[in-house]
Amino acid sequence: MKILYFAWLREKAGTAEEEVAPPASVRTVGDLIAWLSARSPGHAAAFADLSTVRCAVNQDFAGPETPIAPGDEVAFFPPVTGG
């Protein structure tokens, strides 16, 4: 599973992209966030305030209940500020 981080989530996590293999018990985006948060203090900091974290699964906006599967591309980022 490919994980991408953008903007300040990338800075806090300390990586723009990582390949991970979470256990089968990690079934949703919410599960994944909890699992990733335990990887490093940086990851924990990135996910400390989930009200400012948005997510996409396979390039579609997703929520904490969205299911995930091996091979998915999951991205985490702040609320968008383009335009």
Partner: peptide, 14 residues
């Protein structure tokens, strides 16, 4: 289009 772009397209400004 500009209203939706500002809230639905993945861009971030620093």
């Amino acid at each position: 289009l500009i209203d939706w772009l500002k809230t639905k397209a993945p861009f971030w400004k620093r």
